[in-house]
């Protein structure tokens, strides 16, 4: 029955994405995250927030796993009473962004010029500034944020990073456009 899968895909360990609708109740986040630690699933990122219904939350979860483990993760999530719906969005067309703040301290005027230049290239904005420090507000894909962090750390001595994990929504399907 596995003919339909490419065998390489089944054993390949890669990032996979789940949109998870859960009851907006106390303890549900702990239960979901506890499943990942308890069963040694490799959780990469998890974001959560309420939806248009205040009693329903939606989580965007990224796990690093092979196909078999990923199937098991989806089943285990589905088994929870508090889980309303599990959607595998790994291969879906998505709008997905992650909010990241980067604070750079001990900068001189050359650095400041460079930061403004980088902000332009990466399409992020400088949202705060002090005498010798700046804060960048970045709304990028997780990968672009990774790249930006790499670059900032290379160029500047003192960089602090806060990132929020990715949030995703499925694209409007082509036939409805």
């Amino acid at each position: 029955m596995y003919d339909m899968y490419d065998i390489r895909d089944r054993i390949q360990i890669k990032d996979r994405w789940i949109a998870l609708y859960v009851e907006n109740q106390v303890g549900v986040l702990a239960k979901v995250s506890g499943l990942f630690s308890g069963k040694s699933y490799n959780l990469q990122s998890l974001t959560v927030g309420t939806t248009e219904h205040e009693d329903v939350s939606r989580m965007t979860i990224c796990v690093k796993s092979d196909d078999i483990t990923f199937e098991q993760i989806k089943k285990q999530l589905n088994r929870m009473v508090e889980v309303i719906k599990v959607i595998d969005i790994t291969t879906s067309s998505l709008h997905m962004k992650e909010l990241l703040y980067a604070r750079i301290d001990e900068v001189n005027s050359d650095d400041i010029n460079l930061i403004f230049h980088l902000a332009e290239v990466f399409k992020v904005r400088v949202c705060d500034a002090g005498e010798d420090s700046l804060i960048l507000e970045c709304l990028l894909t997780t990968e672009s944020n990774d790249e930006l962090i790499k670059l900032l750390k290379k160029k500047f001595k003192k960089v602090s990073i806060v990132r929020g994990g990715a949030v995703a929504m499925e694209s409007i399907s082509i036939c409805k456009r």
Partner: peptide, 15 residues
Amino acid sequence: VDTASISRNVIVDVP
């Protein structure tokens, strides 16, 4: 009866 029991330990041909 439990989906999560299928193809967890042993890969199954007909679940």
